[in-house]
Design a protein around this nucleic acid. Sequence first.
DNA 1: CATATAATGAGAATCATTATCACTAAGATT
DNA 2: AATCTTAGTGATAATGATTCTCATTATATG
Lengths: 137, 137
Amino acid sequence: MEERLRDSGVRYTGGRREVVAALDRADGPRSAAELHAELGGKVPVSSVYRSLSVLEGAGVVAPHHSVKGITRYEIAEWLAGHHHHLVCVDCGAVEDIELPKGLESELERLVGQVSKMSAFTSMGHSLEVDGYCTRCA
Amino acid sequence: MEERLRDSGVRYTGGRREVVAALDRADGPRSAAELHAELGGKVPVSSVYRSLSVLEGAGVVAPHHSVKGITRYEIAEWLAGHHHHLVCVDCGAVEDIELPKGLESELERLVGQVSKMSAFTSMGHSLEVDGYCTRCA
DNA sequence: CATATAATGAGAATCATTATCACTAAGATT
DNA sequence: AATCTTAGTGATAATGATTCTCATTATATG
C-alpha cells in the first residue's frame, strides 16, 4: 500500500493511516460518517472525505455498491482479497463474506459467460445477497 | 400491481402511473432526478420522491445497490422478473441483464450454499458485474 | 352530492458530499 | 539545522440529493 501511494505521488499521512486502519478493522464497507465516528472524531469529517477520495484515486480503497444514498468504501480487492456481501434490507448493515474456492471459481466462470453475452468489458464482480441480519431477523 | 396497491390501501394515481411507466420503459434502475427528467418535468421532483417511497412500501418497486450517493429504483422482481446488473465504473450507468436459465439456476444453488454458511436469512440476490460500458470502453 | 381522507406541489429543512482557503506539516535543498 | 516548496489539513461555506411541511386538490365511498 505504501508503495502504491508513493508511486501515485501521495503522502501516507497520519489521518490517512487512521482511515485505512479503520477500514481494515471493519467487517464490511464503511461510510465517511461511520469512519469519523469509529475514529472517535479524531479525524475531522472533511478530512475523512478527502482521504477517501485520494485513496480511491490511488486505487487502494474502492466504493461499494451501496444502498440508499450513502457511499461506503472498502479496502481494494487486490489488497484485502476478493469477497462478496450480505446486505440487511432492514437496517442496511453490510457484511463481507468470502466464498469457498470451489464456489468462487464457479462464480468466476459464470461471470465470464455473462461478459461474453454482452457488449461489456467486465473488470470485476460482486454478489450481493439481500436478507435479514441476525439483529433484524 | 393495481391489486397489490389496493391491498396496501394505496391509490394508483396519475403521477404514480407515470413513475411506474417510466421505470418500466427503462433498461435499468433510475434515480428520482432521472425519472423527473425522463418525464419531461410532468411530475414534480418532490412527487417523484414520494411516489417512489410509497411504491417501495407497497413492494412494487425496490431500490438498487447503487453506486456513489444516489438511489436508483427498479420495478420489483416479482413483477419485472429476476435479473442482474452491468455497472459502468466510469459513467455509472447501470444496465439490466438476464441470465440464461442454466446459469441462473447455478447461481441460485450457489446463493443457497452461501446462506447456509452464514447466520443470515437470505431473501434474494443480485450479481453486480463491474466494467466499462460500450460508450466508456 | 357531501364528506372524509389520501395525494399533490411548492418550498423549507435536513443530510451527505464537495469546494474553498488560510494555515500547517513533510520532504527536499542547501 | 534553516529554509523552501509543495502537499495536506481543518473549519466552514456551498452544493446536491432527499425528506418534511402544509395548504390545496383529487378520489372514493356512503
